[in-house]
């Protein structure tokens, strides 16, 4: 069983009004792995995440989560069959996503944000859902923030509530969309620590980021994407140290040069 990847993406293609956003994307993520997806903005990273949660319907290709097809499947007869809305919804809790803007529900407390999907989607008894929610929020260091509404939480706290909300569904895979971009630079270390702690308990993660340093720190493997294609992937160290693909080399040079130029060794933003 361990041979089955937690996420298998094959030949995934998505077009927006004829413009190709994802071009035959292949990607495997194995159990317990953290894969960082890097690339310049507009390269299709976020579109890929949206396809993996079926918020965007890919035009072609297949997604498998823990061995089960999501959205579209190949029947034994070789015919592509579209799954029903219910089938897709039933698989969705398996893929936890933490949005860039977190998208917490502002009319609920932090705890309720974590509890409600469990009762509504998984049909868990409320008492059990509360127990699970409290346990997760406590583990993420929010024991004293559970009764607060999102507007009374800091960015980092909101992110951890969003993580707890997704984890409460017992997902096979967690997706992170630019986890560092909506936070102050000094919180990057905190995000890193949270992702590492998730890795320790064996969580499988796909992290979209344009921060190479963050990717190198957090990921086992890095995949580089440009113009809707995954051009190069491999162990994080190799990708940063010895990029083969010229476009990846350019991207890394550009990012490194900017960083040296803009932030000379500090986290204080000195641009303009």
């Amino acid at each position: 069983m361990s041979a089955t990847p937690v996420l298998r993406v094959s030949a995934l293609t998505k077009r927006f009004h004829g413009v190709i956003a994802l071009d035959q994307v292949y990607l495997d993520v194995h159990a317990g792995e953290i894969v960082a997806l890097i690339g310049p903005s507009g390269c299709g990273k976020s579109t890929l995440l949206r396809c993996l949660t079926w918020l965007e319907q890919p035009d072609d290709g297949f997604i498998e989560v823990a061995g089960k097809p999501l959205g579209r499947e190949l029947t034994p007869g070789g015919v592509v069959r579209h799954q029903s809305r219910r089938q897709i919804d039933a698989l969705r809790p398996q893929v936890g996503i933490v949005f860039q803007q977190f998208n917490l529900w502002p009319h609920m407390t932090a705890l309720e944000n974590v509890v409600r999907p469990q009762t509504v989607v998984l049909g868990r008894p409320r008492a059990e859902a509360i127990r699970r929610g409290e346990e997760l929020l406590t583990r993420l260091g929010l024991a004293d923030r559970m009764d607060r509404h999102p507007h009374a939480l800091s960015g980092g706290q909101k992110q951890r509530v969003a993580i707890a909300r997704a984890l409460a569904m017992d997902p096979a895979l967690m997706l992170f969309d630019e986890p560092t971009s909506a936070l102050d630079p000094e919180l990057v270390g905190e995000v890193l620590a949270v992702l590492r702690s998730l890795a320790e308990i064996g969580m499988t993660m796909l992290v979209v980021t344009h921060e190479i340093g963050f990717a190198a720190n957090v990921a086992d493997r890095i995949a580089f994407m440009d113009q809707g294609r995954i051009l190069e992937e491999g162990p994080a160290r190799d990708i940063i140290a010895a990029p083969k693909e010229p476009r990846l080399r350019n991207f890394i040079d550009l990012v490194m040069a900017n960083r040296r130029h803009d932030n000379p060794g500090t986290t204080i933003d000195t641009t303009e």
Partner: peptide, 24 residues
């Protein structure tokens, strides 16, 4: 994003409307 986060976590469109959109 409010409706989408409810859908992505597995709520049906009606559940998402009821639990997330309507109260807001």
């Amino acid at each position: 994003g409010q409706f989408e986060s409810a859908r992505a976590i597995g709520m049906s469109p009606m559940s998402a409307m009821w639990h997330v959109v309507a109260p807001q």
